[in-house]
Nucleic acid binder design. Structure first.
Lengths: 187, 187
DNA sequence: AACAGTCTATCTACTTATAGGTAGATAAAT
DNA sequence: ATTTATCTACCTATAAGTAGATAGACTGTT
């Protein structure tokens, strides 16, 4: 892994852990032993760095979409759960959550990139829900895009909640509830 | 309203709009025309100010709990919806969401205060759900505390999501879904 | 193969702005 | 006389970004 990728990964961790305005080039520089000015060489502005981070996540998402193309809707949705479970376990938060709470402090290009990512995620989950309904695996939903948003926000803020709570074992219970609400042949 | 209350209110708005680490005493000073050092007189450290903000929200919450004591569970839960709808309309975010994303940058006393608030909110919603079940208005839920958390987190990150979206009219639709999931005599 | 030029990635050293906070003066209110 | 609430003036640390030097790798020319 080259320095540029290293920077993105470290920054990604810092972003997820502390928020966009709460980490600095110096934080990165201390971790991977590089001068802040060298980080500026790769990412002239912090916005550039932020965009690179989101692009990385977008990449991962797109790859997941492709890789799970032929899986069942249930398997697809479980991929999503696994992702958020891991965030939870590592006391992390999803980038959407990490960035939106300080949204008004971000500048345009970064906001646009975040919008891109969010849109892609919503579209994917919506299509999974639609597919599940067509295959009669999921209950009939009145508005699958709204349901998709609900599902995403569930996961999104769960990881946030789990950080405040004493016992952060809520996630499994909640995922169970979500699945129960979704699947046709339960109870 | 005296200066101290003014400071809290302005800071509250800034916190909700930009996050805790993204607003400064100077921001406040510019808005209400007071020197930053005078703000330090009222709130020696930023943590003190943060705690005061949460305390205010805790106050409001406690008053709401008392005021709605004799209302139906449905009316109580609608009070909650109204609160989040208003946040949405004003491009705001709930304090829990605003603070948790940067949780690891906050220091102990502030974190504890946030935990207090969150716990109170969860307990309240849990009791509403229990009451609703006892009165046979709400469906039987396997774990009402988990359901309460889910409900709160839904609202919490919904307001976050609605900020990124082009058309932020999701909230009404989602609240409808949540209610449909909850109420016994629908459709 | 040798040389000149260019590109890449880093460095040191700096600037400008802001953050959070402190010290001490002051004027009015109690 | 003391407390309350404000001020001016300062300090120290850090943020983000810029300028310019340098060393090594890569490239094209003779």
């Amino acid at each position: 892994m080259n320095k540029k990728e290293q920077i993105i990964n470290i920054a990604d961790n810092l972003l997820i852990e502390k928020g966009f305005n709460a980490f600095s080039y110096k934080d990165i520089s201390k971790i991977i032993d590089i001068k802040t000015s060298s980080i500026h060489y790769h990412f002239p502005t912090k916005t550039d760095l932020g965009i690179a981070i989101i692009k990385k996540h977008l990449d991962t998402l797109e790859q997941t979409i492709i890789k799970t193309k032929d899986k069942t809707p249930l398997e697809k949705i479980e991929k999503l759960f696994i992702y958020y479970k891991r965030l939870c376990a590592n006391q992390m938060v999803c980038i959407v959550g990490a960035l939106t709470s300080g949204l008004n402090t971000l500048n345009e290009p970064l906001r646009i990139e975040l919008l891109n990512f969010t849109k892609k995620l919503i579209d994917w989950v919506t299509s999974i829900l639609n597919e599940g309904q067509d295959l009669l695996i999921f209950k009939t939903l009145t508005d699958s895009e709204l349901r998709a948003k609900l599902l995403i926000t569930n996961l999104m803020s769960l990881v946030q909640l789990s950080r405040i709570e004493y016992q952060n074992n809520s996630i499994d219970g909640i995922i169970e509830i979500i699945l129960d609400d979704l699947l046709i042949n339960n109870n």
